[in-house]
Computed example of a mutant assay.
Amino acid sequence: MKVIRLSHPHSFKKEDFPPLVLALGYFDGVHLGHQKVIKTAKIKAEELGYKSAVMTFYPHPSVVLRNSKEHAACITSIKDKEEEIKNLGIDYLFIVEFTNHFAELLPQEFVDQYIIGLHVKHVVAGFDYTYGRLGRGTMETLPFHSRKQFTQTVVEKVVENNEKISSTLIRILIQNGEVHRLPAFLGRYYKTTGIVVHGEKRGRLIGFPTANIEHVDDYILPLTGVYAICAKVEGKWYKGILNIGYKPTFHDPSTVKLAIEAHLFDFEKTIYGQTVQIVWIKRLRSEKKFTSVEELIKQIGKDKEEAQQYFAKNSQEKLAFCLKQ
C-alpha cells in the first residue's frame, strides 16, 4: 500500500495516479462499519479494473474546528489506522492534514481538488458522510458536485444487536472497561502501543514482576482496574494480566499519575525501552486499596488464575481471530 500525505494546497495532478475507487471517512477504530465501506471500495475497484484507495484525515476535524478534547484521544493512532487499512488490501492511502485552511474549502472545491483532482472515478462513503465547509456537502449533493467525472456508492449503517456500530459507541465501551464486547464491533480486540519504562520495581519484590507501559500515542484508555491481556514483545505474543490505575495500596491516588503495569505469564526478560502492543481482552475487577501487601499478593494470584482460566476456556482460534495479528 502506498501512503500519501497531503497538506492543503496539495500539488498532485490527476495524471499522477491511475483511476481510483476512493473510500472516504475519518475511520477512527477502523471498526466493522468502516471496514464495510473500505471493502466495498476494494470490491468496486476490482469490478471496474481500477486501483483502490482510502482517504482519511488527521487530526480529527472537531479538534481543529472546535478545540474539542472529545476526539483528541483516539481508538486507533494514525500508525494503527494505516496498519489496519493495509491489512484490508488497499492500494493507496491518502492522509489529509486537517487544518483551518483546509476546512474552509467549499464542497465543490473539495470535490474538484481532492476527488476529481486525484483521478477518482468512483467514491464510496457512509450514508452520513459530509464534506466541505461546515459539512454542507453530503452524499445527496455529491452527484451534483461530481461534474459527471465519477459515480458513487452509499453504504448504509452497520448494526450489531440493534446498535449502530460507531466510533462513539466503541469509545463508550472502552471508557466503561467493557473491552470483551469490542470484537463484535471492531472485528478484533482493542489494541494500544507503548514503551516499557522504569517504574517503582515493586512487582518483582512481591513475586509478580511487571512491565510499566507508557503509551506512545494519545489513546482512549480503559476504565481503571485489572484486565486479562495479550502483549506482543519482540514479535511474540504472551498472555498476562494488567493493572491500570493509581496503586491505592501504596499511594494517595490524588498525588500520582495513572500507571499501567503488565505482568506477563512465563516471561522473564528485561525489556526496558522496548515497544509493546497491548491487546485488552477482558476486565477482571476494579482497582482497590488493600489493607496489607500480603492481601494484595493473594489477590494478584487470584487475578492471574482467573485470567488463565479465561484463556483456557477461550480457544486459541478465537483469540487468534480477535487479535488479527
Rank of each mutant, 00 (worst) to 15 (best):
P143G: 02
P143W: 04
P143C: 02
P143Q: 01
H145R: 00
R147P: 00
R147H: 12
K148F: 03
K148D: 12
Q149A: 06
Q149F: 00
F150N: 00
F150W: 03
T151P: 00
T151D: 10
T151M: 00
T151I: 01
Q152G: 04
T153D: 14
T153P: 02
T153N: 06
V155H: 03
V155S: 01
E156F: 01
E156D: 12
E156S: 13
K157H: 12
K157T: 10
V159I: 15
E160M: 07
N161R: 11
N161C: 01
N161K: 12
K164E: 13
I165N: 02
I165W: 02
S167D: 06
T168R: 09
T168G: 04
L169P: 03
I170Q: 02
I170L: 09
I170K: 01
I172G: 00
I172F: 04
L173N: 02
L173K: 11
Q175N: 08
G177L: 09
V179L: 08
V179R: 07
V179Q: 04
H180I: 13
H180P: 00
R181H: 13
L182V: 08
P183M: 08
P183W: 14
A184Y: 07
A184E: 14
F185Y: 15
F185E: 06
L186N: 08
L186H: 13
L186A: 10
R188C: 08
R188Y: 10
R188S: 06
Y190H: 08
K191P: 00
K191S: 05
K191A: 04
T192P: 05
T193A: 07
T193I: 13
G194M: 04
G194D: 03
I195V: 15
I195W: 03
V196H: 08
V196F: 11
V196M: 09
V197Q: 13
V197S: 08
V197H: 09
G199A: 10
G199M: 09
R202D: 03
R202L: 15
R202V: 15
G203K: 13
G203F: 13
G203Q: 14
G203P: 11
G203Y: 14
R204E: 14
R204Y: 08
R204M: 11
L205N: 10
L205C: 03
L205E: 15
I206A: 10
G207I: 14
G207R: 10
